[in-house]
Each structure stands twice: as structure tokens, then as C-alpha cells.
Amino acid sequence: MDETRRDRDAEGRARNARPRDGLGRPLPYGTPGVERQPEGVVRTPEETVRDAQRLLDAGMPFHAHEVFEDAWKSGPVAERELWRALAQLAVGLTHAARGNATGGARLLRRGAVALAEFGDARPHGIAVGGLVGWAEELAGRVEAQEGQEAPVEPVDAADEAPRLRPGGGGA
């Protein structure tokens, strides 16, 4: 493939066709990568939670973020902030797993604040309180590395994956 030409989808929109790793980082053309999540998929809330949890458990929070992003863009207006907050948590975990302590902590905290707006509600069985606690605790651990002389140690995305629902996937 000509690497100087922009990748385009069937409709002519710019799309980066480079393969990506499990954390969404672009790899050189021709390198085997992780299959990307299709964009614009309309899922039920149950499917969204199930698919995102599967990706989180596999250590692929960048890809889980894409599932949440689809829900936030296609779902009812009343639920958009829920899905957006969950997408921010997934991107925060992505950055922390890439060794970006500042970006990871910032996005984890931003997602936690937005998710906390749901209070004690459990929309679609999602463990809001548990996820807020998980995000704040992980953000604190990631931030604690910033002032150290040693390089920031990336977190293991699969080991740190939150449980979206108690019992079968809750924080």
C-alpha cells in the first residue's frame, strides 16, 4: 500500500487502515494487528455492556472505548453521558496501560466524575459506585508514579480491567 496516500473507506471518508495493537496503537503496514471494532454499530445496552466487558477482560480497553462510543452516539439522549463516561474510563485505562500516567489519571478522574452523576442508580445493571471507586483508586496509583525518578510503569490492562456489573462483570 502507498503509505503517502490517505486511507479511505467505501464512502471516501479518511480512515486509518494501519493495523493496531491491543491498546489501539498504530503498527506498521503489513504487521499483523488486532482486529478493530467496526464503527457505528447500534447495539442494545445489554450487548454494549457484554461486548465492552469482553474487550476489557481481554486487555483491550481502547476497543472497549469504541463500543461505548457507538452507544453514546446512537443511544437515547438521556443515556449519552453514561456511555461517554464509560468511554472515558476505558480511554483512561488505555493511557495508563501505555504508560501515560498524566493522561490516564486525567481521563479516569474525568470519567469517574461524570459517572458519579448517576449516584446510586444502576443503569442497565452497571455498578456505578464500584466503577467510580475503581477509577479513582487506579488514577491515584498511576499518579503516584509521576514524581518518581523511574519511568512510569504501564499497568496491565487485563489485570486492571473493571467489572461493569457485580458478579458477572462489576467493579
Rank of each mutant, 00 (worst) to 15 (best):
L23S: 06
G133P: 02
R80P: 06
Q145G: 06
P166L: 09
D9R: 08
A64C: 03
A10W: 13
A135L: 05
G140T: 10
E146I: 14
H124E: 12
V155L: 01
L164W: 10
A150F: 00
R13E: 13
G33E: 01
V91A: 11
G12Q: 13
E136I: 02
T102C: 00
L82C: 01
H63E: 08
R5H: 06
G99N: 03
D156A: 13
V91F: 06
V67T: 02
G103Q: 07
A158M: 08
P162D: 05
D2Y: 04
R50C: 00
G30R: 05
T48C: 10
G119Q: 09
R80Y: 01
F62T: 01
P32S: 13
P38S: 07
G24A: 09
P162V: 03
A85F: 03
G130D: 13
G125N: 10
L164E: 10
P162N: 05
E79N: 11
A139D: 06
A114Q: 13
P32L: 13
A58E: 15
G167R: 06
G12T: 11
Q37V: 15
E81S: 09
H95M: 04
E149R: 15
T4D: 12
V142N: 02
G168S: 13
M60P: 00
V41R: 08
A105F: 02
G24C: 09
D2V: 03
G99P: 05
A10N: 08
H65C: 05
A96I: 02
L27E: 12
A105M: 03
R20Q: 14
G169E: 10
P151I: 04
D120H: 11
I126F: 05
E11C: 05
G140N: 10
E39H: 11
G40M: 00
E35N: 01
A71K: 07
Q145E: 14
P28Y: 02
G133E: 11
A87K: 03
R163C: 00
W134D: 01
L86E: 00
A150H: 00
D156P: 06
S74F: 08
E136A: 12
V142M: 12
E66A: 00
G140K: 08
D9W: 09
R20G: 02
V67M: 04
A171D: 14
A10S: 15
E69I: 08
V34C: 02
R8A: 12
L23R: 05
V77L: 13
R110C: 01
L115G: 05
R122M: 07
G104E: 09
D51T: 10
Q53R: 12
A58R: 14
G111N: 08
G24Q: 07
R165P: 02
G22S: 10
V128A: 01
W83I: 07
E39I: 08
F68V: 05
P38N: 02
V41K: 06
R20K: 14
L108C: 02
G125P: 13
V42L: 08
A135N: 07
T4N: 07
G111M: 06
R15F: 13
G170S: 12
T4Q: 10
L86R: 00
R8S: 03
E46D: 13
